[in-house]
Amino acid sequence: MTTPIKAAQRLGETQELAPVLLRTSDLTMRFGGLTALDKVNVDVRRGSIHSVIGPNGAGKTTLFNCIMQANRISSGDIHFASERLVGLTPDKVAAAGIARTYQNIRLFTGITAIENLLVGMHRQLKSHWWEAVINSARCRLDEKKAHEEACEILNFIGLSGRGDMLARNLSYGDQRRLEIGRALCTKPKLLMLDEPTAGMNPREITEMMHFILRIRDVFNLTIVLIEHQMRLVMQVSDTVTVLDHGVKIAEGDPAHVKSHPAVIEAYLGRAAHRQEQPA
């Protein structure tokens, strides 16, 4: 298994060549009088891990919601691959190849782990509902394939043997991974993870870090990551975007962002920034 640093470097070399997969142009989102996102321009390059960081209330999750078209954006534009996303419904966005997870895990709690994965496969299954009733050959084949794939994913996320458990009865870490697994089942090109390490201890965070890198390599994905854990962000990211109060205040590779004065100011406040300067 590649160490995180190496993986980042390897991609770092090819970063300039990779095409833009997701682009938001002047994305603005207002809720009443509050501007949650203000003319945000973000380019996510294919194959990269792109982190979005910022203090609480900076508009990170709103950015995800806007990309998914869960909210109708106020102005600006979003393009994904060759498609304009604005005005689509979330299911069409998912069909275009974007999948996401949620900050507070949102599994389908009333059904089992494997069924959660199968729901994620919804788009992959092509048989019509009436074919299920007459139990057509295509439907049976579809279901069989889906079950096999779901079992593979279940193995991949380390939940083999727990497929028949109700999602709500899984442990916290398992729920996190199951949610990621469910997103993977939609066969996305772009995976958006919203604070995958929230509420985890340092050891679990390290595991999650390796897990994210493995996902990228195995499934050949592009990942957008909202994260508060700076250690993780610095180690896995190819590019980091910093949001504060809905404004993009910095962007670049982790080292660049780390030393950016605006970022330090946003995180530690003006006074801290001034103290930092002489040192």
Binding site: F108, V133, E143
Partner: peptide, 27 residues
Amino acid sequence: RLEGSRLGRAWMAIRDDEDVAQALGIN
């Protein structure tokens, strides 16, 4: 038959969390 089918799972997903179901590509 419907309950165990793709449509049945989609229904149950909608029952549990409509927004997430939609974000997973369910119409």
